[in-house]
Write a protein that binds this DNA or RNA. Structure first.
Lengths: 197, 197, 197, 197
DNA sequence: GATGAATGAGCATTCATTCAT
DNA sequence: GATGAATGAATGCTCATTCAT
């Protein structure tokens, strides 16, 4: 993404400001319904100046998305040598953040389609990188004989993340039936049952 | 949703026509990027006449969503008395449809947020109704001692459906790694492992 | 040029209205400095409705240009069998109109460059058609031995027209030195001297 | 035109730089479509600094126009005592430059209208000065009895220049029909025929 | 019931100019 | 003298909705 300004530090700072302001509005009203004027106002910049750091509204979406995806990815921790315990911890940590930051998670699911192709890859990569942490735990568990040898670490990792995101994108349905703590417990059980030998 | 016309049959027919035309456009270009003019054209009606059967663009979204959700819900079948077999069949059927109609599934996930609150419930109900079929199978399995007693049929059903939808909303990621058939096999294994005793 | 509306008569009428309003503004302030809002106002239409008959501002320029070019082209008359007399009459008529409608002539010269390539040809053709009338007179004169055999009717016609347009695009310079009548007399002499044997 | 800076030599130098950079861009994209930012970039100056030597974009147009007009005016030469030969040489030289620098000629015709009134006179004067050289040749020819006594040197000079510029502003039409050399020959014949006794 | 012309507020984006550094 | 970040009004264009026919 090219900027008009050449002062790298300023560019970084202003883009931070834009991502921050935009993400709040996008969560509130969605990408399409949010106008550049509103975004400029939210990040306390003039419209014209904003365009010094961003070339289009799509650029703003990318900045916001990048921002949101990082917020949604918790440190999964690594206090345990036992793969099952490590997996529990990873799920607990990541699901906890998904709960706390469910607005961000939701935003990513809802607006990813508006991201132009040239940016999609970079967002997907962040996702893949995060999933890889789960894949590692699973692979180690398989190696150590703790997890079933026939599971596919890639797909199971995707399953795990999706089962956590579900709390965000089905919250209307789920929160009527159980609290997050109960949700977490049951998902842990569901996941562990399916990977354990 | 109120209509100007009072001929119920005509109203139903015209709304069918609208839902059908709109859903195709929404899938192609998204809700916000599709104009009422285009919708009218797609369903071979004049703009003015369309407004006799619909009060706003949001009404069109509801019609399209209702249409799409029904398309995405396969008959889960009921050829088996054995709960494990019944579950396998249900998953196979529903996932198969989700694959075939992934555009519809995707549409529902992506545009649900644009649905005004007053319609959300009616769409959620369709979802809940469908999930109930899985809940029944699971409940029977628990009763018969085939499935673990500590699973929550409601949540597990949501999990199952979500793990199927995943094929649609993560297709960029998943289709690079495996075919639908492989995906189905592994998800079946994942699900059965987690519910079986 | 495609229109949203299909009623051909209405389209024609509205485009007339647009060309008429636009040409006045373009003459006054130039194409680039005139906004679509101002044009809409000038032709007593809403901006949105104007776009039913025109797809872009460039379309408006084409309509205005076509309008202007027709206004700038006088009937050259054909009362004389003698080529020299016919030429005199043609020049007198066309220069008279160029004088009366000098604003239109000027407009064409100044804004032609803004016309997108796809329209330029159609405007050039109008020009060529008009020039052809002079070419015919010249050709006949050559044939009858009244005009020099070595003149190039195409180029000379272009010269004649340009020498008339000059009154429009050099008016600041010329009108300080002579009246239109004197201008016409001298140009007639200049032209006739150069084509006569 | 007032400058912020008082160092006259620097002012002159910077304005030269601006005229040079601007004229290229104006030729390429037109006055209105060229931004001050682009101009500043083209003449390797900061926007802010440019405004030390120029008070507005219109000032830049004036500088560019002045520059362009000088480029378009060839030395008409004076190797001949015979007025007819002198005229031929003058036309040949000036038309040759108009051909070589047709972009500059075109630019003058197309953008003159954007020049604010206060500058127009100074540009017209340059034009008048150049035309005067032709007037002198014509006057001498009349005096020597080589040219017709009833021609108006002022108007004929304007005609001559215009007939040369025509090659620039009607190039689409003309270059399809003949080369510059043929054009020059025929215009020479046209002009000489009309002024010779 | 059906039509589609008309409305006008709203959108993303650009750009001449200023001014603190 | 020189810089370029900042301003905000203005631009071309779109579109949900209305309503006279």
């Amino acid at each position: 993404m090219r900027a008009t300004s050449k002062d790298k530090k300023l560019v970084e700072e202003r883009r931070q400001q834009i991502a921050d302001g935009a993400v709040r509005l996008f969560i509130e009203s969605g990408y399409e319904r949010t106008s550049m004027r509103e975004i400029a106002e939210a990040c306390e910049m003039s419209v014209g100046n904003m365009y010094n750091y961003v070339k289009s509204k799509e650029d703003v979406l990318f900045l916001a998305m990048d921002h949101a995806i990082r917020i949604g990815q918790a440190d999964i921790g690594n206090d345990h040598r036992d793969p099952a315990e490590a997996l529990k911890q990873a799920v607990t940590n990541s699901f906890g953040t998904m709960d706390k930051e469910q607005n961000y998670v939701l935003f990513i699911y809802q607006e990813a389609k508006n991201l132009p192709a040239r940016y999609r890859k970079r967002i997907l990569d962040l996702d893949r990188e995060y999933a890889a942490k789960f894949e590692d735990i699973l692979a180690e568990g398989i190696e150590k004989g703790v997890f079933r040898a026939d599971i596919n670490p890639f797909l199971v990792s995707q399953n795990i993340l999706t089962l956590g995101h579900m709390w965000a994108f089905r919250r209307w349905l789920l929160s009527g039936e159980c609290t997050f703590d109960k949700f977490l417990d049951q998902q842990l059980a569901f996941i562990l049952a399916s990977v354990s030998r």
